[in-house]
């Protein structure tokens, strides 16, 4: 354990990380935003789910540096008098949860399908990849919208609000798995012909063991890169769906929902209700994207 840690810190990956200040900054931003939203209960100035903590009288207050602003509400308040900073922290929690689990599920589906398709070949591969092709013909956001629409249509109305987050996660992961499947499949097809796999065959190892013990670890590199970039995309997709009104309901708002709600006040001059959640979203996504970009270049042996 200590040995492999030492190896990591002496390695090229750590070095390329440390030598780029922007990447370090992005990592710090990501970590602190994740931390702040996971522990929103302790970090946020107010609990937005506690009705006693906000007051309609405080509604639509601007950020503290503006006229009428109060230091108690750093980034102002929304129409119901909720502190915008607190709603952002709680909202990021929803956004990150949805993003994170969607990526995990998409990854699991994609890796499994990709491994099976790439290793078996033949008609299994043909069928799986045709499905992937058809799905790839449509933008992920459209698939997510459709899946969301269909599931919501199947669910009874009263359950929709409670299950919204799960529906979202299902919709996003069902629209994202194709990327992993295609990448894993093509790497599997490359790995399958390599001699270490043939050596495992000669030893007599059964197929599942070869797939999971030998091939899987060797195709994980690109998967991790996609996962980081997809995390950013999943957060954006969640926000977009919520913005379009088919995501999480305003009762447990995500960043997208906050922006949607605030959008109505844009023309009457209360810009902070939209702009601050929007900025939080952009900063989060940008930080994750910078990490993904760096990881892709650092793991690409051709660029060294």
């Amino acid at each position: 354990m200590i040995d492999s840690l030492r190896r990591f810190f002496a390695g090229d990956l750590w070095w390329s990380f440390r030598s780029s200040p922007i990447v370090v900054l992005a990592a710090m931003t990501t970590v602190s935003m994740v931390f702040a939203s996971v522990f929103a209960n302790f970090v946020a100035p107010y609990d937005i789910f506690d009705l006693t903590q906000f007051n309609l009288m405080d509604g639509l207050k601007p950020p503290f540096w503006m006229e009428r602003g109060e230091i108690g509400f750093l980034l102002g308040t929304d129409d119901q008098g909720r502190d915008v900073l607190s709603t952002i922290l709680y909202g990021s929690r929803v956004s990150l949860t949805v993003g994170f689990f969607s990526v995990i599920f998409a990854m699991l589906i994609g890796i499994f399908v990709g491994l099976v398709a790439g290793y078996s070949g033949g008609w299994i591969d043909a069928v799986l990849m045709r499905i992937a092709d058809v799905q790839l013909s449509f933008p992920a956001i459209l698939i997510a919208l459709l899946v969301d629409g269909i599931i919501s249509g199947l669910l009874p109305d009263q359950a929709q609000g409670e299950l919204a987050i799960y529906v979202l996660i299902a919709a996003i992961s069902l629209s994202f798995w194709v990327q992993y499947a295609r990448t894993v499949r093509s790497s599997t097809m490359v790995e399958r012909t390599k001699e270490y796999v043939q050596a495992a065959q000669v030893i007599g190892l059964p197929k599942p063991l070869i797939l999971f013990r030998h091939i899987l670890p060797n195709v994980m590199g690109p998967v991790l890169v996609i996962a980081t970039i997809q995390l950013a995309l999943a957060i954006i997709t969640e926000a977009t769906l919520s913005f379009l009104g088919v995501g999480v309901p305003p009762t447990s708002p995500s960043l997208g929902t906050l922006i949607r709600v605030g959008n109505d006040y844009l023309f009457s001059g209360e810009w902070w209700i939209t702009v601050f959640p929007g900025l939080a979203l952009v900063i989060l996504v940008l930080a994750v994207n910078i990490l993904g970009d760096w990881l892709r270049d650092a793991l690409n042996p051709k660029l060294r």
Binding site: K194, E195, Q198, A199, A200
Partner: peptide, 12 residues
Amino acid sequence: QMIFQDPFSSLN
């Protein structure tokens, strides 16, 4: 058993 040609790809 078999020994392969490419020493770089024949070991995991």
